[in-house]
Amino acid sequence: MRVICTDDTWPIERAQGLLDRVGATLEFAYEVPAGEDIVGILTYPGCAIGPDMLERTPNLKVVATCSGGIDHLDVAGLAEHGVACCNIRNFCDQEVADHSMALVYACLRGVVMLDRLVRSGTWWPYPQPPRVVRGARLGVIGFGAIGKLLVQNAVGAGMEVLVVSQHASTEEITAAGATKAALDDALATADVICLITSVTDATRGLISTRELALMRTDAYLVNTARAALIDHEALGRALEAGEIAGCALDALPVEPAPADEPALAWPHTIVQPHAAFYSEASELRSFDNPTEDVARVLAGEQPVGLVQPAV
């Protein structure tokens, strides 16, 4: 039995140790090779996998990704062929919530732009003055495990927090110290909008021209979730036209970002290399958890991160 890992950052030796108990051999390959003995794939969000993979690996049993996001996996298509898809959950919730809060702070206090300003030889005046965080309004789009931790951070910082969620009840949001709001109300009134939701057909392109136009001209947009939530062409136009004050992006349409990534030239923009998930501990969990799930499926056990196909 072979398991193929398409991610060149995966700690292969460590992962092999986790697969030894089921007698599977782990190999790295950017492209999954053909092979009837290939039963598992370990992968990452940059690598799309669907049912056409079965043409090369007819005995595939499990695909596990080192991410919470699964938009690169055709879960339903693979399930039709009996292939289980696993993602990882809760491995980096605190990290993403902390990074999101760091970016909310960075936008409102202007620290990245001010660092660039000083280095360019300017001292005063500030192109965009720092603002008070206490009492500023944060719109959190999404109230999953990470969104809840971000709300906790922001409420602790004295911010007024609005939560936009299809699923969470008003009571649950109120108990967290926040206020449930409709998307348009949050967009129209928030100092900062932070996207902490997964990509679905309902959220793809959630933030586009209309939504950006609703936002205040002094408002910031923070995305520590997925690039597909935003119409990036519209965001670039909004920033160039001064329709919003700035943005912080930890997710870009193409990752790693190519040299001609348009966002690198947008004004008042903080770019991050998809780093919000990271701490030393979360990184190890991100590789161990899917590897362990592959071992579970191959051993006939229930995987922890099994993704149910939408019905």
């Binding site: 902390d98 990074h99 809060m101 760091a102 970016l103 702070y105 960075a106 620290v111 990245v112 660092d115 903080i270 991050q272 780093a275 919000a276």
Partner: peptide
Amino acid sequence: SALLRGVH
């Protein structure tokens, strides 16, 4: 938070 998370 910017230092600990490496933002700059």
